[in-house]
Each structure stands twice: as structure tokens, then as C-alpha cells.
């Protein structure tokens, strides 16, 4: 099994309103030193070992579904799993 860890984040040019709300909560908790929070999404996809063109598949899944290229960017790591 091949494990792919995918991180989707908002582009810097897009205001992250959920991140702002989380930042406010950290201040309420008593951590005034938090100057910014950017929220993202994390996905784990498992692929069969026999999958050819793995990176092409992952790119297509990210571009077509997991991330919206207008407002989000993504990066991923590929790890082997027993």
C-alpha cells in the first residue's frame, strides 16, 4: 500500500476568515503572541502498490477535486506503508 499525505491550503492572496476566528480564540485562551492562523485541509489517500503514474493521478485528484486552484494550493508526500 502506498500512502499519500496531501495538504491543501488557501493561497496567501485569499483572506482566511476561519483562520482569523481561530486566531481570536487563541487570544481569548491567553496566547496573545499568536499573530496569524492559516487553516488548511489534510488528506490521506491509500493507493494499491500496483498503481502506475501515481504522481499524475494525485495531481489530477488534487486539481479536480481536493483543491480549488482559484483559491487553494496543495503539496503532498508519498510514503510506503506495510
Amino acid at each position: 500500500m502506498i500512502l499519500v499525505k496531501i495538504y491543501v491550503t488557501l493561497k496567501d492572496s485569499v483572506v482566511d476568515v476561519q483562520g482569523e476566528a481561530i486566531k481570536d480564540a487563541t487570544h481569548t485562551m491567553g496566547y496573545p503572541g499568536v499573530s496569524e492562523v492559516r487553516m488548511g485541509k489534510y488528506f490521506e489517500l491509500k493507493f494499491d502498490d500496483s498503481t502506475e503514474s501515481l504522481e499524475k493521478d494525485v495531481d489530477e485528484i488534487c486539481d479536480g477535486l481536493l483543491a480549488n486552484p482559484n483559491i487553494e494550493s496543495y503539496r503532498y508526500e508519498i510514503a510506503e506503508e506495510a
Binding site: V14, V15, V17, Q18, E20, A21, N68, N70, I71
Partner: peptide
Amino acid sequence: LTEIGLLPGTLTNNRQN
């Protein structure tokens, strides 16, 4: 319609969340 690409741009969280 924006997600399928028939219209440009994106709708995201309201500014006031």
C-alpha cells in the same frame, strides 16, 4: 457552476464568517 468551470471565480466564506 464555478466548481465545474462553467463560470469563472469561486464562492468562499463570507468575510464576516
